[in-house]
Amino acid sequence: MNGQQPVNIVMIEDDEGHARLIEKNIRRAGISNAIRHFVDGTSALKYLYEDESGPALNGPALILLDLNLPDMSGTDILAKIKSEGALRRTPVVVLTTTDDKIEIQRCYDLGCNVYITKPVNYESFAEAIKQLGLFLSVIQVPDIETD
């Protein structure tokens, strides 16, 4: 791969509404990276590790991960991503409704880069997403430089 390979955003979120809100706010924050959306863990993992355009085989990515998925626990996906070679360095943003300290702690222990509690307050949610956007542009820089 060469040049300005864009960072793909992989969103694993079972709630369509949340997904749409996240996407809208990402776009509103001025981030235009491609977003791949998965509603369950199995298909997301398949894409991450096996798909030709997936981050394991192709290009850098940022993963937005919801912890409450219908088929598996988000923490399991996080553990898998952070423990296995190809995606170890891929930044993972955990986005969930839980603000339980223990669960947040566990996510950080497993190697999550950012933990964002989905706020009900729309403004702070947008703010969080905007910060996420800033985060995305920050991580984009070394990618461009190294390529």
Partner: peptide, 8 residues
């Protein structure tokens, strides 16, 4: 979860 949607 749904509340996030409603608010959003």
């Amino acid at each position: 979860s749904p509340l996030v949607n409603v608010m959003g």
